[in-house]
Design a binder for these strands. Structure first.
Length: 292
DNA sequence: CACTCTACCTGTGCGC
DNA sequence: TGCGCACAGGTAGAGT
């Protein structure tokens, strides 16, 4: 379940890693499941990508944005946009390796490697557009870089439960279920708290928690969840830990449903909102939960 | 506007 | 052993 930190790690690896995609040229395109393409036919997709050269790799929220120059250098740069959704992965492998069962898309490159989009559940999607905004127009600002003031302004425009609000990509782009729960735990706010009931210091704490959690997770190259999801080394405090003790106060962590989503929190560190108007602020000092 | 539900998918893990 | 089923979750779109 790649969220912002996992997608950022992928972008960094493909940009700066030993097997950088930059400057590599597409030699062949295999679409192994047509449904992976959004808004473009297989024929057009292949024709446009053939002989194109990777020039830039960026990210907005959970979307990966690859800039490519077409074969004739006078033609305008275009963009390959990829959303991994639930189970999508990007794999660089030797060109000689065969396709495996869940490969949906494969790009053979001129450096002897192959970029493969692998997705057992077929939720992930790929676009080919002139401008990334054609795909990302409805996204809010990126959750990793939004400043406190803009966060406060955007928050003030809503009266919503915090959990669904954090998950709303048009409000803030990049937060998924794991980091929504971890952020709310970090600042001691209950998932059902109404955004309109937050004091300005609550809002600052919430923004600080989101920023801190995401930055730590990016530094750890993503989350590491007990036997379920192991992209990187970021250790979760509440997500998937229902029935286990809270790392701060040892109260048993609870799992509920909020807006159809599994939601994990500590009932002691994140007390239920009392109808309207929240009580005073709480500040948690957490030990660094990252291990190597 | 806020919310709820459904559809899209398939591997996993449970109860029987 | 194996069957059936709930569950996981990001997003779009329809409905309340």
């Amino acid at each position: 379940m790649p969220e912002l930190p996992e997608v950022e790690s992928i972008a960094q690896a493909l940009r700066d890693g030993k097997l950088s995609l930059l400057a590599s040229c597409v030699q062949r395109v295999d679409v192994l499941w047509d449904g992976v393409l959004s808004g473009i036919s297989v024929v057009d997709f292949k024709r446009r990508l053939d002989r194109a050269v990777f020039r830039s790799i960026d990210r907005h929220g959970k979307y990966l944005l690859f800039g490519l120059d077409p074969a004739g250098s006078s033609v305008k740069r275009f963009f390959l946009v990829i959303h991994l959704r639930m189970t999508g992965r990007l794999v660089m492998s030797a060109a000689t390796d065969g396709h495996d069962r869940y490969n949906r898309l494969s790009l053979l490159l001129d450096n002897g490697t192959c970029l493969r989009f692998d997705d057992p559940r077929k939720f992930g999607r790929v676009w080919l557009v002139d401008e990334p905004s054609q795909v990302t127009a409805n996204l809010g600002p990126d959750a990793l870089t939004i400043g406190n003031e803009e966060f406060a302004v955007r928050l003030a425009a809503h009266q919503r439960q915090l959990k669904p609000l954090l998950l709303d990509q048009s409000f803030l782009a990049g937060i998924g279920n794991i980091y929504a729960d971890e952020s709310l735990f970090r600042c001691g706010l209950h998932p059902l708290t109404n955004s309109g009931d937050l004091s300005s210091s609550d809002v600052r704490r919430l923004h600080g928690a989101v920023a801190a959690v995401l930055k730590e997770a990016v530094a750890s190259q993503g989350a590491n969840i007990d036997g379920v999801f192991k992209a990187g080394r970021f250790i979760v405090n509440v997500y998937g830990r229902q029935g286990q003790p809270c790392p701060v106060c040892a109260t048993v962590i609870v799992k509920t449903r909020v807006g159809q989503r599994g939601t994990h929190f500590c009932p002691n560190c994140q007390p239920a909102p009392p109808g309207r108007r929240n009580q005073g602020s709480r500040c948690l000092t957490l030990p660094t939960m990252v291990v190597t």
